[in-house]
Design a binder for these strands. Structure first.
Length: 248
DNA sequence: CTTAATGTTCCCCA
DNA sequence: TTGGGGAACATTAA
């Protein structure tokens, strides 16, 4: 579930309740370093949720099926909890690909796509020979994009997932950058995409999945030209695209 | 029974 | 060093 828009949505929900609260206890995989300390702020770093404390940060990565919500209940998939005075945050994760850890420095990641200028994006792509989809998914190149928004952005920009990043014209890269920003912003405004597991900090689903144009829609007609949407594997990730609209 | 799933990391090879 | 391919991790749903 969790790509930049979903993580941003969770962060905004947590930011409404956690700042100022003190951690009284932790359970499961929640790091003990947080106990007795007060949350200063909640932020997003790529796909990480960060709870800031005076002497360190609690990083949470939702993996594929992680859910972080304000709830005093537990489920059979609850892997950790943060108990505060007056609130409880529960971390559920069916597939256990997610993580929670304490650190004093950031994991190495590329720039945030929403903070990047068109020129910076073009320069980034021009120095990489890889396929454009692989570049967008590479967190060390760009932090936050995942399989859903990569397919949606490439479709909107009419770029084939296997196009060489460096060989794309500056104009097409500028278009891709613009489409990426618009899609991410709209997805955040819609509360993210709920495909199977994603819910926000209150346990509510997002609404952007209703506006997906190609993700998970192989076999259906392209919403622009009617050609059957194709599916292929790129970097071992299912990729859906329009073979007519999207060119290299 | 088989396949695919919103992600990351590590290993091997060119 | 860069990049591609594949596997692994763990679980559910179709």
């Amino acid at each position: 579930m969790p790509e930049l828009p979903e993580v941003e949505t969770v962060v905004r929900g947590m930011a409404q309740v956690l700042p100022g609260l003190k951690v009284t206890a932790v359970e499961g995989i929640a790091p003990m370093e947080a106990v007795g300390k007060q949350v200063q702020s909640v932020r997003r770093y790529g796909k990480f949720i960060i709870l800031d404390f005076s002497d360190g940060m609690l990083f949470i990565h939702l993996g594929m099926t992680g859910q972080l919500m304000v709830s005093s209940d537990t489920s059979k998939f609850t892997r950790g909890r943060l108990l505060f005075e007056g609130a409880t945050v529960r971390y559920d994760d069916i597939r256990k690909f997610g993580k929670m850890f304490w650190d004093t420095h950031y994991p190495k990641r590329g720039p945030d796509p929403l903070e990047l200028t068109p020129e910076e994006f073009i320069a980034l792509a021009k120095r990489r020979k890889t396929r454009i989809k692989a570049l967008l998914l590479d967190q060390s190149a760009l932090r936050g994009m995942g399989n859903i928004y990569t397919d949606e952005a490439l479709f909107h920009a009419k770029i084939h997932p296997c196009a060489s990043a460096a060989k794309l014209s500056r104009a097409r890269l500028a278009t891709l950058h613009q489409c990426t920003r618009e899609i991410l912003r709209e997805a955040i405004a819609a509360g993210g995409s709920s495909i199977s597991d994603y819910v926000d900090a209150r346990g509510e689903k997002g609404g952007y999945q209703l506006r997906h144009q190609v993700y998970g829609k192989h076999g259906q007609p392209c919403p622009i030209c009617g050609t059957v949407l194709q599916r292929m594997l790129v970097t071992q990730r299912g990729t859906t695209f329009c073979p007519r609209c999207q060119t290299r």
